[in-house]
Nucleic acid binder design. Structure first.
Lengths: 195, 195
DNA sequence: AAACGCCTTGGGCAAGTGCCCAAATCAAGG
DNA sequence: CCTTGATTTGGGCACTTGCCCAAGGCGTTT
């Protein structure tokens, strides 16, 4: 076999994943077809079933990869701040960037729903979310926030919900929402963290 | 014409709406077809386009109706309690009843995503949510909760997000989550409402 | 040059899609 | 009885769907 061929194959595989994420956001999970995703990636339709067993497997792989990427960016985000309120500000600030063409935040919601109907996908998504929560909970707990596990779960769920509703109500900016979210990460004594 | 015919027509229309809500939850917005929804309702396939202009219109009408129903139940819920923490407890307690495969909570998320791709649906969903938020915000404001509008928005978004994630993590019970949510509705002085 | 093997293409098939429409149904009014 | 008019049916059309597969391309190895 040729190493050149394998390399090109991996590059095509990557293009299919990117195209899948775009189209999941644009048309919804059920609206992505073999031919549309192949055309977007600029390859023949048959390649979808060559690199991935089925359209469902392509969509699942694309969504999980996108979610893992976001989870990784959380890690570097938490290293930049010390105050929980500042961390929330950075996380929620993505709300304002979200103009509607942000594919990744939409893919999160689509993946949640698709996971409801696919046991294999559910396990993968649950794993990503558990990792996310554990990381955030450890960080919050080290800074005196009460019930760090539950707090991390609610913070994550709140951001997911806010991203969805922001598409319906542009007035729901991070500036409006942040003061309320900050109440969730107040330390029991009422004092805020300082480095 | 026969009044009986019109009456039966309205009954069939209702059955189509119910079937649509069920199928949106089971198969997702894009997975509901003319024939599946007609079969579930026990009628011929042609009736979908007789009572509704298109499948999209049927789905939108069904989702909005289901959402309005939930919004109405919120109103009666707020009349039963006085403490904001108790109100949250009642709202979130539905989390435990909803195992994740609950039709209505799933339809909410599906409707949010579908509204992103249908301007007409977006307006209707936004109206329902605005009404919901206004009602809750007024109730919270009258009880001394700071920034009632933003708080109502975040509470609503949090519950939406929690309902989604609860399908992935059954450990996310109302008992675990409630203490964190209550922090959001604490009155500025730190005192809790008493009747 | 020939053989090998991964990658890629595009056509083909059965099944399903939304929507349309002629024909049937049926209770009320003439 | 016959008409009326809303309701309902089921078949049909053009189209898309997921997936398969024979055929070809191309770098590497022999």
């Amino acid at each position: 076999m040729g190493p050149k061929s394998a390399e090109r194959g991996r590059e095509v595989r990557e293009r299919l994943l990117v195209a899948a994420v775009e189209l999941i956001a644009e048309r919804g999970w059920g609206g992505v077809s073999t031919r549309t995703v192949a055309e977007r990636a600029g390859v023949g339709a048959g390649l979808v079933h060559y690199h991935f067993g089925s359209v469902q497997e392509l969509l699942s792989a694309a969504a999980v990869a996108a979610m893992r990427e976001v989870g990784g960016s959380l890690e570097s985000l938490l290293e930049q701040v010390e105050d929980p309120a500042d961390a929330l500000r950075l996380m929620v600030s993505s709300l304002d960037d979200y103009t509607g063409d942000d594919a990744v935040s939409m893919v999160f919601t689509e993946a949640y729903l698709a996971a409801t109907r696919d046991a294999q996908l559910r396990d993968q998504v649950a794993e990503v979310m558990a990792e996310f929560r554990a990381r955030l909970a450890g960080w919050l707990g080290a800074r005196g926030v009460a019930e760090p596990e539950a707090t991390a779960a609610v913070v994550g769920a709140s951001i997911d919900g806010l991203v969805m509703q922001r598409a319906l109500d542009p007035a729901l900016t991070s500036e409006v929402v942040l003061p309320v979210l900050v109440r969730m990460v107040q330390t029991p004594g009422g004092a805020r963290w300082r480095s």
